[in-house]
Design a protein around this nucleic acid. Structure first.
Lengths: 217, 217, 217, 217
DNA sequence: AATGAATGAGTATTCATTCAT
DNA sequence: AATGAATGAATACTCATTCAT
C-alpha cells in the first residue's frame, strides 16, 4: 500500500546520526518550542527523511527529552569541570557562576531548551530544570560549607544559602534568552560575584555607616 | 429532525463571566501547559460550552495571553502596593522580595503560568516573564539608586545591580513550582534578604559585626 | 495553529447521524476490508467531515467493531424473531436456517463484515463470528433437545449436534460472499433442511420413500 | 565514517530459505493478521534481515498470498491423498471430513491463515477460501455422484449436496480457531459423519435401523 | 447570549520498499 | 546473498474554530 520514492542515501554511522539529530533538535526546539517544532522540520533541516528520525528516537517526545538531557549534560559537565579546576571556595563559586554565564552566552539555544522544558511535560518526576537546580545546589552546598569552615564565608546555613545561590543562577538562565544583561560576560560574572560575596548593603570598610545602621535599629 | 432540548446556561454578567474563564484558564494552563490544555476542557470545567469561551476570547492564544497577563497584573500590583507602603530602601527591597515569595506561595498556579509562558509564544516581542523581570528591574533600580544615594547601599551601578536582583527573584519564581525552599516563607524572605544585603563573604570590616552576631547566636 | 474552513453544516440528530455512519461503515468495511477502508473515505462518502465520525466513534477500530455488532444484532434479532414465530422443532430449525439464508441474501454487505471480522482484532475475547456461532448453538441446542424429547429428532447429544449445525450455518455465511449456491434462496433452504434432517445416506428403512422419489424423477 | 561489522548470515539453500520464510509467515499472519504483521517481524523472528525477505518475495502481499497458498496446498494434498486411499463413497467422505478435522487440529495456524485471507485482498478473483471450498465441492460432487449411483446415498442433486457438504466443512474451519468443538477429533469426525449421513430427523422408516443401533449402544 | 455539532488543517507515527555497503 | 539504514507515502486522530439553532 505504500510506494516509496528515493532521494538521499547518506549512510551514516548510527552514533553520529543520532548526535546530529540531537543537536539540530536542540536548536529547533529552542527556537520554536516543542509544540511548534514538528519532526518533519527537524528531519528536513538535516536533509534526511522523517522516518530516519524515528529510527533513532521512538517519538517526538523522546527526542525532545533527549535533546534537553543532552543540553543539561553539557552544562553540568562544564560546571563540574571548571569547579574542579578552581581552588578555594571563592574561586570555585566563581567558576560555577562563570560556567553558567559562559555556557548560556555561547549557546543560546541550549539555554532555551533547558528553560523551556518546564513548560512541557510536567509529569516527569524530575524536570530538567530541576535537575540542574539540584546539581548546582549540591555543588554549592559543598563549596559554601567548606568556605564557612575556612572562615572565608559568613556563617550561614549552607543548605539555605546554596538554595538561594542556585536560585540566582536559575534566574540567570531564564533571564538570558531575553537579553537581560549589561556589558560583557566577564563584567557580568564580576558583578554577580561581587553581589554574591558582599551583597548590596554598604558594609565592610563602610564601618561608620554600618555603625549608624546598627544604632537606628 | 428531532432537535432536542438545549440547556441554556444562566446568563451571567459579561465581566464576571470573563473573569471566571480567565481564572479557570490560569489554573488549567498552569497545570497542564498550553499545548495540553484544550478550550473544550476549560469550558467544560466551568460547566459552559466551548462556544461561550469564544464569545469572550477571540482565540485560544488570546485566552492564554490574557490569563498570563491577569496573573502578572496581580503580581505587579501586589508588588507595587507593598513597595509603596514600605519606607526606606531596605524595607522597600524587602517588600518587593516578600511580595514575590508570598505571591507564589499563595498561588502556585499563578507562578506556573507565568513561568510557563516563555516556552510558548516566543514571537511575542515581550514575554510575560520578561515584563515581570523588567517591572522588577525598574522598581529595583529606583530603590537601589535611592539607597546608594542615602549611603545605605554600596556604590554600585544601579542598573547592573537591579538586573542581578531581578534575576534572583526570577530564579525564585522558577524554583517555586519545584518546591526548592527550606522552611517557612518568612524565613526564606529573611534569608534572601540577608544574602542580598551582605552576600556570603566573611567581610573584612565585618569582623566586629560578625563577631557580635556569632556571639548572639 | 489551525485554520478551519467551512463546508456543509447539516445539523443532524445525533442518533440518526450515528446510525447513518454505522450503515455506511458496514458497507465500506464489507467491500474493502478494515485495512483498506479509511475513516476519511467513510466520512466523504456521507458528505461529512472526518472529524464528525470521530464525534461518534472514538476510533476507527471502535467504528469497525460497532459496525460488526450492528450487523450481528440485526441477524440475531431476525433469527430469534423467526424462530419464536415458528412452531415445532423442525419448523424452528427451518426458521433459523431460513433466517440465515435470507439475511445474507438480502444484505451481502452484512454477511461480509461479519465474516471478515475474524481476520481483524483477534484479541477480542469473543469475536463477532464467535458470538453468532454461540448464539446459534444455544438456540439450536434448545430446539434439538426439545425435538429429541418429542421424538421428532434422533437421539443425539444436543450439544454436539447443535455445534455441528452451527458449523453448517457458519459455513453458509462464509460461503455466501463467494456466491457458492445454486438456485434460489427457497431452494437452498429446502435442500439444506432435507440434508440436515435426513443426511445423505440412503437409509435402510428409507427404501420406500426413496423408491418413490426415484420414480418421481 | 565508521562502517562497523555486519553479521552476514550463513548462506542457505535458496529453496530452504524460501520455505523457512513461508512457514514463519504462515504462523505470524495466522496469529496477527495481515495488517498487523510486518515484514520486519517475519524477518527478525527468523534471525534474518528484512531485505532478505524481499530477496525471496517481491512484496508483502506476495508473501502473504504465497503463505496462504502454501497452507492450502498442504490441505488439499492431504485431502486428496486420504480420499484416494479410502474406498467406497462413505469412506471417502469420511476421509475428506477427517482430513479437515485433523489438519486444522494439528495446525491451528494453517487454519487461521486460510480463514483469514478472505478479509484481505478481495480483489483477487478467487480467494483461497474459495479455492478450498471449490476443491472440496468438486471432490464431494464426484463422491456423492458415485455414491448415489451405487445406491449408498440418497438420490439428491450431487452439486447441490456437495455445496452443502462443503459449507459444512468450511464452517468447521472457521469454527476451529474458536475452539467450538466438544471432545476429541475422532469423536468429532464420528459425530459429523453420523449427522451428515443420517441427519437429525428421527427417520420414519428408520425404525428398524435405529432400533438396531440403539441396541448396539 | 449560549450551545455543541460540524469542520478540516495539522501532525505524529508506521511500515513497505529500496539500495549502498 | 545478506544486511539494515534510509525513505516517504499513507493515515489515524486532535482540536481550534465556526455557525446553525
Amino acid at each position: 500500500m505504500t510506494r516509496p520514492k528515493r532521494r538521499r542515501r547518506t549512510r551514516l554511522d548510527p552514533s553520529l546520526r543520532r548526535r546530529e539529530i540531537l543537536e539540530k533538535a536542540v536548536v529547533l526546539f529552542a527556537r520554536n518550542g516543542y509544540g511548534r517544532t514538528d519532526v518533519e522540520t527537524v528531519a528536513r533541516s538535516l536533509g534526511i527523511a522523517k522516518g530516519t528520525v524515528y529510527l533513532y528516537f521512538r517519538s517526538k517526545r523522546e527526542l525532545f527529552l533527549a535533546a534537553v538531557e543532552y543540553a543539561v549534560r553539557r552544562l553540568t559537565e562544564k560546571i563540574d569541570e571548571e569547579v574542579r579546576q578552581a581552588s578555594g571556595p571563592v574561586q570555585k563559586v566563581k567558576a560555577l557562576v562563570g560556567a553558567h554565564f559562559r555556557f548560556f552566552d555561547e549557546d543560546q539555544a541550549f539555554a532555551e531548551v533547558i528553560a523551556r522544558e518546564g513548560g512541557e511535560f510536567r509529569t516527569r518526576a524530575e524536570t530538567t530544570y530541576d535537575s540542574i537546580h539540584t546539581h548546582n545546589a549540591r555543588r554549592l552546598e559543598e563549596i559554601v560549607a567548606s568556605g564557612v569552615g575556612l572562615g572565608v564565608f559568613r556563617r550561614t546555613d549552607p543548605r539555605e544559602t546554596s538554595e538561594i545561590l542556585a536560585n540566582l543562577l536559575s534566574g540567570t538562565i531564564y533571564a538570558h534568552p531575553y537579553g537581560h544583561r549589561t556589558g560583557k560576560v566577564a563584567d557580568a560574572i564580576e558583578a554577580t560575584m561581587k553581589f554574591l560575596l558582599h551583597g548590596i548593603a554598604a558594609g565592610a570598610g563602610n564601618g561608620t555607616r554600618n555603625a549608624l545602621k546598627r544604632r537606628r535599629k
